[in-house]
């Protein structure tokens, strides 16, 4: 933990550090033996009390912490559980910040509509992608598993500026992925649609007319940055 003064920059550094270690709040015993020590929730409270703007707490505390974990994940230094524990800690902070943002002002990188395609019930890959994109600032609309193309198109109509993600885990449901992309393209020819899942490849993504493929959530974040740069 950063040697603490109560200067805002130290508080932000502590928030980022607690996100990385997964220390959501004082009650949590992660890392082991840390029960009673302040976690993300308490540091965020302190930052709010010091009038640090919520936007700064989000960007320089919470998201900065998760970004470090995302990079370590991509470099095989940490693995799925550490990422999930960090994301949970980040959420503890987000929950404190939410009331400070009026719904419209909650800063967001954009809206991401995500679903597993028709005939496929797998959701763990989809969930992980959603969670990490949320950590990267995207507002997530999770349309669930076994999504008929109509369901996806309806969700896009509701969020016309969104980017879309489709997941499939079986070669059979990759066919449904192709159909979903075609249906989306009919109504939204220029929509950013990215695809992923164990059997999906870059080549297949091109074949079905998707905008891009990413093998994992970190790559999905980069891909979306390229396809739909932040305004």
């Amino acid at each position: 933990m950063t040697e603490t003064t109560d200067a805002p920059k130290d508080i932000l550094a502590n928030i980022a550090q607690c996100v990385q270690t997964g220390k959501a709040d004082a009650n949590m015993n992660i890392p082991m033996g840390s029960k009673g020590q302040p976690g993300v929730a308490e540091w965020v409270d302190q930052a709010i009390a010091k009038d640090v703007p919520p936007q700064t707490i989000l960007a320089e505390g919470l998201m900065a912490g998760l970004q470090v974990i995302g990079k370590k994940f991509a470099a095989n230094e940490v693995f799925i559980p550490e990422v999930l524990i960090a994301a949970r800690a980040m959420h503890a902070g987000m929950n404190k910040l939410k009331p400070l943002f009026a719904e419209q002002d909650m800063p967001s990188r954009g809206t991401f509509v995500m679903g597993t395609v028709q005939g496929d019930l797998h959701d763990i890959g989809k969930n992980l992608v959603c969670m990490l994109l949320e950590g990267a600032g995207w507002r997530i609309i999770d349309v669930g598993v076994d999504c008929a193309p109509e369901k996806l198109v309806a969700a896009i109509k509701e969020h016309p500026d969104c980017a879309v993600g489709l997941s499939a885990l079986l070669t059979t449901t990759m066919v449904a992925m192709g159909k979903a992309v075609s249906a989306i393209r009919e109504s939204f020819p220029d929509k950013t649609v990215i695809v992923g899942g164990a059997p999906v490849t870059e080549e297949f993504a091109k074949e079905i007319g998707a905008s891009g493929y990413a093998p994992d959530p970190s790559a999905a974040i980069d891909l979306l940055d390229r396809l739909q740069p932040a305004a």
């Binding site: 799925i80 559980p81 999930l84 524990i85 994301a87 949970r88 959420h91 959701d123 763990i124 969930n127 992980l128 969670m131």
Partner: peptide
């Protein structure tokens, strides 16, 4: 139980159970 865990945003435990 895995699906319920994800629905209630308990990703850490749901993913380990998965």
């Amino acid at each position: 139980r895995i699906a319920d865990g994800f629905k209630s945003k308990d990703f850490v435990d749901a993913c380990m159970l998965d």
